[in-house]
Design a binder for these strands. Sequence first.
DNA 1: ACAGTCAGATTTACGACAGC
DNA 2: GCTGTCGTAAATCTGACTGT
Length: 387
Amino acid sequence: MASVCKQSSNGKLNGRKSIQFKGHDGKRKTLRLGKVSMKTAEGVRAQVEHLLAHRITKHSLDRSTAQWLTEIEPELRNRLVSVGLIDARESTRLEDYCEAYYKMRETDTKPNTQKKYRNALNYIYEFFTREKLLKDITPGDCDEWRLWLVQKKLAENTVRKHCAVAKVFFNNAVRRKLIEENPFQDLKATSVPNKSREYFITAEETEKVLTACPDAEWRLIVALARYGGLRIPSEPYALRWSDINWADDRFYVSSPKTEHHEGKEGRMVPLFPQLRPYLEDCRELAEDDAEFVIVKHRHGSCNLRTTMQKIVKRAGLNQWPRLFQNLRSSRETELLSEGFQLQTVVAWLGNSAVVALKNYLQVREDDYKKATQNTAQYTTVSRGAVG
DNA sequence: ACAGTCAGATTTACGACAGC
DNA sequence: GCTGTCGTAAATCTGACTGT
């Protein structure tokens, strides 16, 4: 049925082998193996015989052939698919599929996203094993996988993130018709807000922090976060001196986080009076031809955290939950309470009203005080109205 | 038209540790 | 003791879909 052929070029044997056989469509097929020993080629030939027999009898594949299929190189498996010996749907291994998809996405995703993919893949491989066949993963297995992540004490948002990645990978498998449905489909993937990590940094606290900063650049970083509402560190790092429009009292902030969305590459932010002096200080100190505003403290690994923690400590304050995000969210909350309109504030901060409400805008202790100080007025009016 | 969700992408934060 | 790095955890965004 199937036979090993020694290939030759220019009339000379070149060590390459192939296996020829008659496919179930009656046509003669060739499976090229490249340079392999006769013994290896014979081994493959035997498996090809089994596969041919399997195709005719429709009996389930014998154990050793099934095992062999999981062990061979993806490349050989692909060739078996293309000569019609096996069905891709029946034989794709989890790892082979995921790695192929990952490789494809390396062309259109940023490094941080690829890291995230890898992160989730590791959990997927660890739980399902790399050899698992794609078709054998059931929705029930996926539920178990999620539970397994929860038991690892991961935060709800992290578990959801891993589920989201799994869904992305398996959606493509569905589109490639390797599986009928996405077994991860029903797992929740939307992130949830975490109000317990909110914190409002008051004007007094901000002043203390600014005083505790080691140099002008650090004061600027803090001022950009607390008064400008910038994302730290990506946005200060992107800031160029050419972005500052001193005359019109505003500056352009490029935003790496949102730049892949049309029209969200950056925004104009006012040179708030609380912010301007710190920027001027740094301009004084900067080289005339300096391109970037932040120079001294821009490290590849962007580890501003360690120093910031020390600054906060030196300022005599307890560290708040989100070192930089809380500064930004305090500013957004404050600008609104100062009377600026929501659409204005979100345009300056570079987020949306929905996101601001979900993740940024806080209810402050001051709000309670303000509300109760006005009690007398309110009660008089409402009593009068209800009458 | 609109509110609620989901999907997909990306950034930020943290703990541990190595090297100076 | 300070800095930078690494692996991993967590948070944020935008845009599209969906049911009403």
